[in-house]
């Protein structure tokens, strides 16, 4: 019996060492009909005085074979794991998922929106199709102003028009909401320009309005200086140059000088203190005096995003923004 144990051990360990299918070898020796199981059944015929010794030897055989099986399993698993990583060609290009992009104008607009939101501005909206009153009269534009001309502005057959600036949203907002109002309004505007490298008939603007008691030129200056420095970096120079707009007084154009725009002064925005005539037009419309220019004051500003996006990215032709060439769009 003990001789059988020793020879079975030698046989099992030798087989395990080269085994590919460890599970089968396990069954062969340790399964219900395995050789070690069958040998154990011979314990019944072992003389009583030898039982303890032979039983011990059998247990040792079982433990040795089990340990050898486990060691062999680990060796095989390690080899398999190594092989799993070894065959990969790391120089092959990555498998890219489909990659989309946001339009450069959307990206620029969102940067601007985020900055103004941090200063507590909410968004506002108005329609593209506007009345002449909202686009011109309420904004203190003289009755014979050239901007109203059919050569410059798109009209619908019913006499309404496509807004020529987003300043209409100032009016829409004040019609509906009592002060204080603190809004920005990005949107489309239209001018009857022939399309060329620097003009589109439709363009994108961002409008802003803040009306409350005691809003001053200091608020206007602080807000827009903060905005442009956030947008272009702390080293940006902001210059307010006196100008004329019918709906603000005093009025300014804003020039920016920043490395991001090539270091040259660049005219970027118009702004000013809301003209009392605009507040009076709102009062007439609302039939109340909550926008009495003696009680509230405000500032307004507006700037175009198309030209700005072009200057920031070096886009030479404004039409590229609407041609939707994927080779262009995917760069942003």
């Amino acid at each position: 019996m003990e001789a059988q144990i020793d020879s079975l051990r030698a046989e099992a360990l030798a087989e395990i060492e080269g085994a590919g299918d460890v599970a089968a070898v396990r069954v062969k020796y340790l399964g219900r009909a395995g050789s070690i199981t069958l040998l154990s059944e011979g314990m019944r015929s072992v003389p009583k005085e030898d039982k303890a010794r032979v039983g011990k030897a059998l247990n040792a055989l079982r433990a040795d074979v089990t340990a050898a099986l486990e060691a062999r399993e680990q060796t095989i698993e390690r080899a398999r794991d190594e092989a799993a990583l070894a065959g990969i060609d790391l120089t092959l290009p990555g498998i890219a998922p489909q990659r989309g992009s946001l339009h450069p104008l959307t990206q620029l607009l969102d940067r601007a929106v985020r900055i103004f939101r941090r200063m507590g501005f909410a968004l506002a909206e108005g329609p593209d199709i506007e009345t002449e009153w909202h686009c011109f009269d309420a904004l203190n534009t003289p009755a014979h102003h050239p901007a109203r001309n059919e050569q410059d502005t798109f009209y619908l057959p019913d006499g309404r028009l496509l807004r020529t600036h987003t300043s209409t949203v100032q009016i829409r907002t004040m019609e509906r909401h009592v002060p204080p109002v603190r809004i920005i309004a990005p949107g489309a505007a239209y001018r009857r320009d022939e399309v060329d490298a620097t003009h589109l008939a439709q363009f994108t603007q961002m409008e802003g309005l803040y009306v409350a008691p005691d809003v001053s030129l200091a608020d206007l200056k602080g807000t827009l200086e903060f905005f442009f420095r956030e947008l272009f970096g702390a080293g940006t120079n902001v210059r307010f140059r006196p100008h004329f707009f019918p709906f603000t007084e005093p009025s300014f154009e804003i020039d920016i000088q920043t490395a991001a725009l090539g270091g040259k002064w660049m005219e970027l925005a118009g702004c000013g203190m809301v003209d009392p005539a605009v507040f009076e037009a709102i009062c007439d419309r609302r039939l109340d005096r909550v926008y009495d220019p003696e009680k509230v004051s405000g500032f307004a500003f507006g700037f175009g995003l198309d030209r700005l996006a072009m200057n920031l990215t070096g886009i030479p032709d404004i039409r590229m923004l609407v041609e939707n060439d994927l080779r262009f769009l995917k760069q942003f």
Binding site: F121, A122, A124, E125, I183, A212, D219, G222, P242, F252
Partner: peptide, 20 residues
């Protein structure tokens, strides 16, 4: 000259709108 005006940023934030 507007350079003699000191810029100020101090205003109550506007509540979010439906447009927001």
């Amino acid at each position: 000259g507007i350079e003699s005006v000191e810029g100020r940023v101090a205003a109550a934030p506007a509540p979010a709108s439906t447009a927001d």
